[in-house]
Structure formats: structure tokens, C-alpha cells
Nucleic acid binder design. Structure first.
Length: 414
RNA sequence: GUGGCUGUAGCUCAGUUGGUUAGAGCGCCUGGUUGUGGUCCAGGAGGCCGGGGGUUCAAAUCCCCUCAGCCACCCCA
């Protein structure tokens, strides 16, 4: 047991795990490309205000989960807890309002100071997609369709449910908030302590409380749809109609809310019960007010983010790397020849593992451990005859092959 | 920040009511094979029993503290 441990909530991605992550990221790149998305990368840290101003002063992310520090110039810097604010900042900094609409994906590490548990770490990875500058509900339809397509390509869509809700526009949302506060206030004495706290800070959050007592009260709470004005209702109807046309199955969930302040209208989550308490695989919604709130031009946006670790846990084990050819040189002169041949074969497109040290037995064992399809053995005998001994690692058959035709012979193991 | 469970070899785990030198499987190393892996046989290395303190003639085992891991709450991807 080593005393040198990684920082709590961080993990090394060793090759097997790395392959899983890569599969998730490769998949989002490939699928989103078909929808016309391009990848952007923003810094993993930003000035603290980028997150503090946009995520809402009362959100837990801002109040207790940010990794914030002062750099040597005295600026307050924060490791990004999510990437939508970073993309919005890049949109403003780069003057991208000239080239709307924009469709971006991103991927990379995010940081939140939380207690680790299943599917949750302090440094974790997200992939995300954003459409900027489209007022039409069609953008929401496309962004959700992309999410479904992405999960399908990973082979996990059948284990996921698309839950959908609308928060309405800011007027509807404010009106709903009022009736909701009235309702819950009249039952305040029966609410859980957590929910009483939420009543003042973020009353809509009470709706997804897990407390049994709360659930009884929530069951009779006013529905958000009853507070919708015509605009909000029309927008939501358009999203639903679009999803049906696009062939994306959904379940309405009027209790689905968003923790972050900048969301409006469409809110959705692809959830699963395969990962314990952490059900959200892909989550997002519309954020028409965000960019303006950050000081940019009024620009609508819609998007989602997905947890790479969570998806990596759900996908089938990716295939092992292709089997290499093991190159074994025995003796000083032969080792030089082996290196020459190795580079020649690599440039010809073969995967070649060069044995570094040890006797024949050791090198053969190494060849076996790297799952080599064949071993190419060069010793003094071979050198003298200008041949190589090629051993098929599966059958154990081996034969001498003239160096001139080595590439042709090895083609079968490629 | 709160709660529950768990920390023994590189990995997965045994270890009795506290009692001699803490074990197994897998992996690793050496040999059986002078230039042949994967199977087989023989042998070997590897442990401050998470860390600290306490109780006791005696602690992996009991008590306290602490750290870490897992799971759950809050919150969230």
C-alpha cells in the first residue's frame, strides 16, 4: 500500500479506462459532425466572475463546490465546474455574434469540490454540445436528437429515458415561482428541513426532493404548465412536435427542474437507473438569458452536457488494441538489424513491439504478454542467411522468411 | 458539510473466543529448456495487517482519534 495517493476525487485513467473514455469522445465527435457541429476548446480555468455571475449566487456550485484560488497577479481564478459559461465567454471575447448560428461541441475535465461517490468525482470529464443564436424550437429538437443519437451510437440509449419539461419563459417562470411559494408556504410545517431551506433559495428544487414526506406534498403542488403564457406553451408544443417528427421518444416530467439560473423553456435529462443514485447521463436545456447576463448581445442558446465517466461505465468494453508483431533481436549485430527492420515495418504501417532486453525466453514471454500475433526473430544464424524466423504466436508454427519478402509475409498479421 | 460500510502481498480475498513464524488464488521472479511464449512441474521473492494512540503478559483481532476508499444525503454530468 503506497502512501502516495492521488488527490481525493481524482483518478488516473490507465489504458483500459482510457480506451473507454476515448470511445465516448470519439463517438460524440463523429455523431455531432453529422449534425454540423465543430469542436471548441476553452481554458480549464477562467476568472471567477465568469462562473459566479452566471451560475447564480445561491447555487451550490458557486457557494461550495468551486476550486477557486488567487493567482500571482492577485486575480481570482476558478477551475471550470462546467463549460457552458466558458463557451459563452469565448463567444463574447471572440466577437462570434457575427457568425451566428453556431454549433459547438467540447470535451474535457471539469472540477467540483464534492464528496466522491458512484459516478461522481472532483475532477471529472464532460462532453457537451451547444447551439447559439437560434430562437426556434428547432434548435432544441436538434440538440436533443443529437443527444439521443449519441447515446444510441454508444449502445446505451435502450437503458436511458429522455425526461422532458419546460420551465417557460421568464414571465411564466416568475408567475409559477409565486404560486409555488404560496403552496409550499402553506405546508411549510410538514416540509423537510432541506426543503424549507429551498423554499427561500430555490423553491422549484423542492419538486425533485427525495424526502418521502415532501413527496406527499409535492404530489398536489401546482403544475408549471398551468402558469404558462401563450409564448411558453407554443414553444413547448413546437419542441414536442419536432421530437415526434424526428423520432425521438420522450417522457414528460413536470418535476424536472434545473439548478442553474440561466435556464428557460426546455429542460431535459437522459436518465438511467443503471448507475445507482447518479441517474443523469446527458442533461441540458435552453439558456436564452445567459450571454446577455454576461455582458454580451442578447443571444439565445440551447445545449447539454454529459458525464464521460458515467457513460464509460455503461458502454461495452472496447476492443483491445490491434495485435502487434514482436521483433526479437539476439546478439549485438542482430539487435541493430532488428531496430532497422522495426522502423521499416512501422513506416509500412505495421504495429511493432521491439524487445528491449533479456534472453530469448524473456522476450518471447514479453511477446506473449503484449498479445503479439507473430514474432520475428533475428539471430546470428538468420543474419548470415539474410532471413528472419517468423513464429505464428497462435499456432506456434515458424518458418524462415527472406528479409526481402518479410513485409509481404507479415501482411496476414496486420 | 452529514450519515452508513470497508481498509491484510501488485490484484481479489481468508485469518476462529485476542495466543508461537499472518495465509490462499492470480500475477511476478528463477529453474526444468544452449535460440522459443501461451499449458505443465519444482522452487522463490514480496506484508509496519492504512496511520497514530490506548487496553493487555500478549492486538490484524478490543477501544479512541485520524486518513483513505466505497455507497447514500445535499447538490449535480
Amino acid at each position: 500500500m503506497s502512501s502516495l495517493q492521488p488527490v481525493r476525487g481524482t483518478h488516473d485513467l490507465l489504458p483500459d479506462e482510457n480506451r473507454r473514455h476515448r470511445r465516448v469522445i470519439d463517438t460524440v465527435r463523429e455523431v455531432s459532425g453529422r449534425y454540423g457541429f465543430d469542436e471548441v476548446t476553452t481554458p480549464i480555468f477562467e476568472k471567477t466572475e465568469v462562473f459566479a455571475r452566471t451560475l447564480g449566487d445561491t447555487s451550490d456550485i458557486v457557494t461550495k463546490e468551486m476550486y477557486t484560488f488567487e493567482d500571482k497577479s492577485g486575480d481570482s481564478i476558478t477551475l471550470r465546474p462546467e463549460n457552458t459559461a466558458g463557451v459563452a465567454r469565448a463567444f463574447i471575447s471572440g466577437g462570434l455574434a457575427q457568425s451566428l448560428p453556431l454549433k459547438f461541441i467540447y470535451q474535457g475535465p471539469m472540477f467540483r469540490y464534492e464528496r466522491p461517490q458512484k459516478g461522481r468525482q472532483r475532477q471529472f470529464h464532460q462532453v457537451g454540445a451547444e447551439i447559439l443564436g437560434v430562437e426556434s424550437a428547432l434548435a432544441d429538437v436538434e440538440i436533443i436528437a443529437l443527444g439521443a443519437h449519441f447515446l444510441d451510437a454508444l449502445g446505451v440509449l435502450d437503458q436511458a429515458t429522455l425526461e422532458l419539461n419546460s420551465l417557460g419563459d421568464s414571465d411564466s417562470r416568475a408567475a409559477y415561482r409565486e404560486v409555488l411559494v404560496d403552496y409550499f408556504s402553506s405546508h411549510k410545517d410538514k416540509l423537510s428541513e432541506d426543503s424549507r431551506e429551498r423554499l427561500g433559495r430555490n423553491p422549484m428544487r423542492i419538486l425533485d426532493s427525495k424526502d418521502q414526506g415532501d413527496r406527499v406534498i409535492i404530489a398536489d403542488a401546482p403544475q408549471i404548465a398551468d402558469s404558462f403564457n401563450d409564448t411558453s406553451k407554443a414553444f413547448f408544443d413546437a419542441v414536442l412536435a419536432g421530437l415526434e417528427t424526428a423520432g425521438v421518444a420522450y417522457t414528460l416530467n413536470s418535476k424536472l427542474v434545473r439548478g442553474l439560473d440561466y435556464y428557460c423553456h426546455t429542460a431535459f435529462e437522459f436518465t438511467t437507473d443503471a448507475l445507482g443514485a447518479q441517474g443523469a447521463l446527458v442533461a441540458g436545456g435552453r439558456y436564452d438569458g445567459l450571454i446577455k447576463q454576461m455582458g454580451g448581445p442578447q443571444t439565445p442558446g440551447t445545449g447539454w452536457a454529459a458525464g464521460v465517466e458515467r457513460l464509460a461505465m455503461m458502454i461495452e468494453k472496447p476492443e483491445d488494441a490491434a495485435r502487434p508483431i514482436a521483433m526479437i533481436g539476439l546478439g549485438d549485430e542482430a539487435e541493430v538489424k532488428a531496430l532497422t527492420l522495426t522502423q521499416q515495418l512501422r513506416h509500412a504501417g505495421f504495429r511493432v513491439e521491439l524487445g528491449y532486453s533479456g534472453n530469448m525466453k524473456k522476450r518471447m514471454k514479453r511477446a506473449n504478454n503484449v498479445n503479439a500475433a507473430a514474432a520475428v526473430i533475428i539471430g546470428d544464424d538468420e543474419l548470415a542467411k539474410n532471413v528472419a524466423t517468423v513464429r505464428d504466436m497462435e499456432t506456434g508454427d515458424q518458418l524462415e522468411v527472406p528479409l526481402a519478402s518479410l513485409e509481404d509475409h507479415l501482411a496476414r498479421y496486420r
